[in-house]
Nucleic acid binder design. Sequence first.
DNA 1: TGAGCCTGCTAAATCGATTGATCACATATT
DNA 2: AATATGTGATCAATCGATTTAGCAGGCTCA
Lengths: 352, 352
Amino acid sequence: MARVRISDVAAAAGVSTSTVSLVLNDRTGARISEETRVRVREAAATVGYTPNSIARGLRMQRTRTIGLVSDVIATTPFAGRMLAGAQDAAREHGHLVFLVNTDADPAVERDAIRALVDQQVDAMIYACMWHQVVETPADLPAQSVFLDCRPVSGGHPAVVPDELAGGRAAVRELVAAGHRRIAYVDAEELNPPVASGLRRQAYLEVLAEAGITPDPAWHVHGSETTSASGRAATERLLDLPADLRPTAIFCFNDRMAAGAYVAARHRGLEIPADLSVVGYDDQQLVAGELDPPLTTVALPHYEMGRWATEVALGAREPPAPDQTYLMPCPIIRRDSVSSPPAAAANSSRRRA
Amino acid sequence: MARVRISDVAAAAGVSTSTVSLVLNDRTGARISEETRVRVREAAATVGYTPNSIARGLRMQRTRTIGLVSDVIATTPFAGRMLAGAQDAAREHGHLVFLVNTDADPAVERDAIRALVDQQVDAMIYACMWHQVVETPADLPAQSVFLDCRPVSGGHPAVVPDELAGGRAAVRELVAAGHRRIAYVDAEELNPPVASGLRRQAYLEVLAEAGITPDPAWHVHGSETTSASGRAATERLLDLPADLRPTAIFCFNDRMAAGAYVAARHRGLEIPADLSVVGYDDQQLVAGELDPPLTTVALPHYEMGRWATEVALGAREPPAPDQTYLMPCPIIRRDSVSSPPAAAANSSRRRA
DNA sequence: TGAGCCTGCTAAATCGATTGATCACATATT
DNA sequence: AATATGTGATCAATCGATTTAGCAGGCTCA
């Protein structure tokens, strides 16, 4: 069963293809009588005509498609939300999205960008899964937006999570609960460079604004960003002398926070009564499934996906040239934060 | 900077566009001298020509694109692997994939299928995220493959996980470790219908083949498939009299298994010394992060994604008409299974 | 010398839409 | 009567490739 073409509609309605096109596209200014319009529309409906997007794309020089090239889609739960955001925005604007997963392979990435350009995509989104600064790939069309990363040399709109504000919100949550001895379970130095640095900066800033001088022992590093690594780092905090031991921990991410739970449990410490914990990322399967559920800061992947797509399609004003848009990271309050244990509050208040 | 067209190459090489096309597509049988071929190729390289896929698609009636419509992409970690599998297979065959997320909205789904057909995709993949039987959507082209679901009325190739074999492997793992009192923490009746039924069937079959008569009390249901629900169901098992209490649990999925861990811990039971646990799904962030890491059965989403794409592109033989391909689910051995406690028959062993 | 056959290349049709120019005809104006 | 104006619809070019039929020129051979 061959596809119905515009000429089939024209034949059925007894008019030319021009007329059909003019009617179906509602071209104002075209002088077509109302009777003819009705006849054409009915003919189109009865033969079941839908326009061939390829032919239209060729003629119009506009395909109503966008390309999304991402370095990772399988190994992180964030990718899905990002895609969903991009997807929804694209659909709302009548666009379809080509998805390419490069697995961070530069050759695959190059070929993918070329293939998408050859497909005449109207716009392109270059996404990374971890907030970072990247080289602008060759052949990237002008109409491109960076998602969860920033081009070193600028030249394109970009959106990343506002990790500084998010980190501040997380630590303020602990300060507001009355904690003074607050630790930071950090990722390995420089990995991933941007996120880690900003969250650490937020930690230091909030302690300073609360008039707390952090003890260097409160800043511990994990070798990776896993639960096991978070546990090991937390052990070191819990080994500190009682008057120095933190009553609250801000963790680089939720997985490390899960490790903190394990460490605390092995010492017989209750969360949050004996130790308050805040994570980052809001990984549903981690933060939501922990016992008690983890208070954390969400990474706004869905929103960033939407933002990037809307900017790429020109439906939203881009930020000033070479400015990166910072997407707010909302704090997700669950049950892992309470006021510090009474004993801790009384025993030692270290102030500058 | 306008795109380079084939006519630009022709002009640069001093030949016709026909010649350029013939040369660049390596059409054997075309009588073009070697000198001309070299000249054309050099011209193409220097002007930086790459063919316009839209124009080619129109002429060839073949776009080298496929459509993938999925009911969910954001809320499950499995979606990513499925996409990655489809993606990789498509790339290896020189195809690009259009991704559409319908959020299980029938209207969105209908529009998406139409849009993809209008884009002249060469093939289509209809994916669900949870193994199920579905109605065949209207307008679905003949060249379509069902992924992680089966059309009620057949007519298309389909691939689903072999949950029966996977479930058998899981329970056999417990039988092989020496367990006799093996429980099944099930999902709610009929939700999701197919997976739950098959895993239950596997449980009953393996007990039967091991000569074990299951006590009805060993088959408990959770109201949902969450950790909390798994915990509640497990509590009921642990409340059984000592001589009836299971020494091993097969859980419908990893999240419920995480709940079983919580229940066991609250009773002071060690996993696997006091209670062996096997899950299903191999959700990395759950199974891998538990303490101890959970032995489970993996859902082969990546492989199913590949399979569906290869069949859709004709690169792999489809199964016999109206036969559904069952993809093996490999067992992932971690540390949550050991032999039953020696005193299992008469002691509840509460630990401090 | 001219029919037959290669060789090397190109003209022109085609894919299915969109659109500016144009046509046929009716009516209004001078 | 001749010209202008307006209406409704169509013609034909176009987008950028692929592909079939065929042309021009050289060579062979009877």
